[in-house]
Design a protein around this nucleic acid. Sequence first.
RNA 1: GCCCGGAUGGUGGAAUUGGUAGACACAAGGGACUUAAAAUCCCUGGCUCAUUGAGUGUGCGGGUUCAACUCCCGCUCCGGGUACCA
Length: 837
Amino acid sequence: MTQERYNPQVIEKKWQARWQEQHAFACSHDSSKPKYYVLEMFPYPSGNIHMGHVRNYAIGDVVARAKRMQGYNVLHPMGWDAFGLPAENAAIKNHTHPAKWTYANINNMREQLRRLGYSYDWSREIATCRPEYYRWEQLFFLRLLEKGLVYRKKASQNWCPSCHTVLANEQVIDGLCWRCDSRVVQKDLTQWFLKITAYGDELLQDLTRLKGGWPERVLAMQRNWIGKSTGASITFGLEKKVQGVDRLEVFTTRPDTLFGVTFVTLAPEHPLVEHLLDGYEHADEVRAFVERIRNMDRIDRQSDTLEKEGIFTGAYAIHPLTGERVPLWLGNFVLADYGTGAVMGVPCGDQRDFEFARKYDLPIRVVVEPRGEHLDPDRMTEAYTGPGVMVNSGAFDGMDNETGKEAITKALEQQGRGKGTTQFRLRDWNISRQRYWGTPIPVVYCEHCGVVPENENNLPVLLPLDAHVRDDGRSPLPETENFVACTCPRCGQPARRETDTMDTFVESSWYFARYTSPRDDVTPFDTAALTYWLPVDQYIGGVEHAILHLLYARFFTKALRDLGFYPPALDEPFSNLLTQGMVLKDGGKMSKSKGNIVAPSEMIEKYGADTVRLFCLFAAPPERDFDWSDAGIEGASRFIGRVWRLFAEEEAHLLPLKACQSDAQDATTPQARELRRREHLTVQKCSEDMGNRFQFNTAIAAVMELVNAMYLAREHLRGSDGGRRIFSSAMASVLTLLSPVTPHVCEELWERLGHTTPLAAELMPRWDAAATAQEMLEVALQVNGKLRGTTHVPAGADKTAMEQAALADSAVQRHIANLTVRKIVVVPGKLVNIVAN
RNA sequence: GCCCGGAUGGUGGAAUUGGUAGACACAAGGGACUUAAAAUCCCUGGCUCAUUGAGUGUGCGGGUUCAACUCCCGCUCCGGGUACCA
C-alpha cells in the first residue's frame, strides 16, 4: 500500500489555479434558480489579511458553497473599501502615494484571499477609490442635495486633532476617535450633513421587520442609538418680550407633570440667554457662568460625576395653563442640541429637577402620587417617577397619569400652547472630511453664485492623483491649485472647488448594490440585476459596525430608494445578519503591542488553507469569540490527515460512487447497515447545521463521527461488494459534506475517486429516512425521574411493550422492589419513567 | 440606572420541541506498532465514595412538572450597548 503524504501546498495551489482559470464561481442572472446573495463586509486594504478576516470570510464561503450545493444561484462578491486615512498616513511614513500604497495592498490581499480558496466571483471585484465607483457617489450626493437630504450648516463639531478631520457622532466612542483613540475636541465648522434624521422613524420602525434575521443585540443597539422619545413640546410665555420674542419652547416626555413646574431651565448656549439678561442687575455673574460652562470640555461636561449647577437669569416665564410666573434658570446639565435646549423643571417627578430644586431652594409641588399614598414635598428624599394619580393639577386631578399625558397634551393643543411630538437622539450625519484620500464633494464656491452643485455631466470630479501629501498630515487638496481652480457651472466665472471629501462610510453604504452590476458605466445600477439580486440574503461581519456602517447603509438604502435608484419595495439592504465573534489570543485581542498576532500566511504555510479554515469554523460557533490555540489547529490538521489516510489506505477498494449512493441491498450485515445509517444521519445533520443553522462546529463534529465510524468498520466492509459500496458511498458523503469547509482536499480526493466533474458543482445529497431508521431503539429507564438503566425495544414498540420491557429490567425491579407503582410515563422510542412510592 | 447577551468537565464547546447532561475536539492517562522516539491506530475518562453499585452534578435560591441546562419567580457574577437625552 503505497501512499503519498497529504501535501496541502501542492493540492491547494492546483485547485486555486484551476478555479481562477475557469472563473469557477462567476455567476449571472438566472431566473430559473432561486437566488442567494451572501456578502461579507469588505475589507479596508491595510496590507494584509488578518485572522479576523480569515474567519469572517471562511464563514461566508461555507455559506456560499453550501447554498450553491443546495441549488441556489449564488452571488458571492469581494471588493475593497479603499478610501481612508491610513493610506495617507502610510504615504507620509513610506514616502509614497496613497494610491500607490492602496493598489499595492489590494494586489497583495487579493492574492492572500485567493490562497485561502474563497469562492468569490472575482469578475465583480470593486475598489471604492476608483473613479468608476465614486462617480456614482457624487451623483447620489447631487441628487440628495436636490432633494434637500444634503445640507450645509455651521455647528460645533467633533474634531480629531490627530486625524485632522471632523467625525460624525457615531464615530466618537467614549469621547475618543473611533480610528486612532485620540481625544476628540469641539470645533465650530461649516460642514455637509446627510439628513438621516428625516428617516429616524422609518429606521426605527423597520427594525421590527429585521427581527429574527438580525441579532437582537444589534437591533437593540440601533434602537438605543436612534433614541426616540414621545412627549410634547410646550410653549411657555415670557414675562418680558425680548427682541420681539415672547415665548419659549420646552420638550418633555412627561406632560402629565406640567402642573408641577416650579422653574424652567435653559442650556447656557440657548440663543435667548443674552437677551433675557438685558437690564438684570446680576447679568455679569450669569455671563461668567455661561462662559465657564461653555469653555468646559464636552467630555467632562457630560460625565455623570459632574455636579449640577445653575444660576437664576432674573427673568420669568409664564406657565401655559396656570398663568403663573415661573423663574428662568440656566443649568449646566441642559443640552443645547437636544430637544429645544430648554426643559421644564418638575422636582417632584424628575430626579435631576429634584436635586436642582433642593440645591437652590426652589419649591416642590407634588402632582403625581402612587395610588393610595400621599407624598409630602418637605419629606421627599427623591423624585417619584413611577405611575400614579394626578393631584394639584386643576381639572386633571384624580386622573391616571398616563391618561393625563394625553389629556394635558390635548388641552395644550386646543389652546395653541403645545403639541404632541417626538424627539430623536439621532443627529444628522456629518459627511465632510478634511482629508485627501476620499471622494471629492462635487460642489464649487462661486463669488457670484455662492455654493453651486457641480453639473452632473461634469462627473466624476476626479481626485487629483498628482497632489503632494503633506508631512504634517493635513490634506493637500486646498493647495492643489489645478484641483481647486475651476469654473462655476452656473455663471462660467472662475470659482473654487470644495476641498473636503466624503466620509468613507458613504462608500460602504451602497457597495453591496454595485456588485450586482459592477461594470455598468451608464447607470450606477442595472435595474434588472438589482431587482434580481437585492436584498442581500446573508450579511456577515463584525459587531463593531452595529451602529456605524449598518445604520448608515440602512439609511442610504431608504434614501436611494426615494431617489428612484432602488426599487420602491427595497426598504432594507440586509435580510439576515450574522455578527461573527473576534479571534482572540490568550484571552485578549491580538495586537502589535502585545506581540501576539497570529499571521494567517504563516499558518497557511505550515498547515495549508483547508486546515486554517477548518479550525476557524470548528473552534466555536460563528457568533462567539474564540481563542486561537496552537493545539487546536494541530487537531484540525490531524483530522484532515485522518481523512486523507483513510482514503489512501482504502483507495484500492473505493468505487466512484457519489454521496448516499449505496442502497439498502448492499447492507447485508449489521455493521454495514449501521455505517449506512450513520452516513445518512450525518447528511441530515450537516444539511441542517451548515445550510440553515450556520452551526459549522456541530456539522464538522458530525462528519468527524462518521469518519471515526468508518475507521472502525473499514476492515469488515472491505470483504464484500456491498460493503465496498457502503464504504465508498460514506467516503463520498464525507468529501461532499466537508467540501464547503475544506474545498481543496475534498476536490482532490473526489477527483482521485474517479469523478471528472468538480465537487463544487454537485448538489448536496438527500438522505433517506428509511436508511436512518433503526430496528432496535435504546430506551432510557427511569424510576422517579432517575436514570436506572437502558434497554432495547423494537422500533415500532407500543407503550405496553415498552412498559413491560422496563418492568422486566433487573435494575428497575431492584428500585421499585418495596414501592407501589403509581404511574408509568412512556415516551415512545425514547424513555420509560416509572413513578412509585 | 436602563436595554441586550452570557455562565455547562482540566480546556474549547454539544444537547434542534421539556425526555439518557457532557456529542466532537484539545489537553491527560493507558495499550498496540517501533531497537527507540515521533507519527499513526485502539481504549479510558464530570465529581465523591465504593467490590457489583450508590450519591451528586449545567452560576446561586425557590417554583412548575412523572421529568428542567431547557419553562416561571427572585438573586449573583461576567461581557456588550447606552445614559444628566428632559
